[in-house]
Amino acid sequence: MQLVIMSAVAFLTTFAYFATERRLHHFEILAAWLTAIIINSPAYSFFAVNHHWVSVPRIGEIAAARLIYTQWLFPLYVTWTVGRMTALRRPLAKLAFFLAADAAMIGLGWGLHLSGIVQFKPAAWPYYAILKTIVLLSSAGAALGIRYLMRKDGIPDAAFHRPE
């Protein structure tokens, strides 16, 4: 059941994202997305293998549900957050949105725990919160970095904002 729910959520969320995203250039989307994967994937191994803070039941369906979440839904969520954050002008609004998005990511982790997809040990939660903050900041940094490189390559700022 977890796999069905996770697949349906992934499909609908992906559709919703690409139907509405107007804030980031696709170079920035790719940079933010890949950075989320690059940081999150090894961190899972660090949590699961080095410290045994998280475990996934040895059931194929649940393992697949976790993979859909970590390799697709989570980077999608991070990329969506980076796009929304970029669109905000005031620094305080950015900060408030960042904190809310960060808290929501921890909430998603809690949801995974409750649904039995991943089992977290209590010691994992502080590190999990720090990890999600690092992922979000790094993805935002990657999107900014790629925008900088595009400017250096001679692509003007107008290319970054697709019309609403």
Binding site: A31, S41, A48, V56, R58, Q71, K152
Partner: peptide, 26 residues
């Protein structure tokens, strides 16, 4: 530069997806 950076990110992310999906428990 921007395309090269993205290609390198792709080159890092895709193997990591494999390594940390197939090479870790369960």
């Amino acid at each position: 530069k921007s395309v090269a950076a993205l290609v390198m990110l792709i080159g890092l992310a895709l193997p990591l997806v494999w390594d940390h999906s197939l090479g870790t428990p369960p």
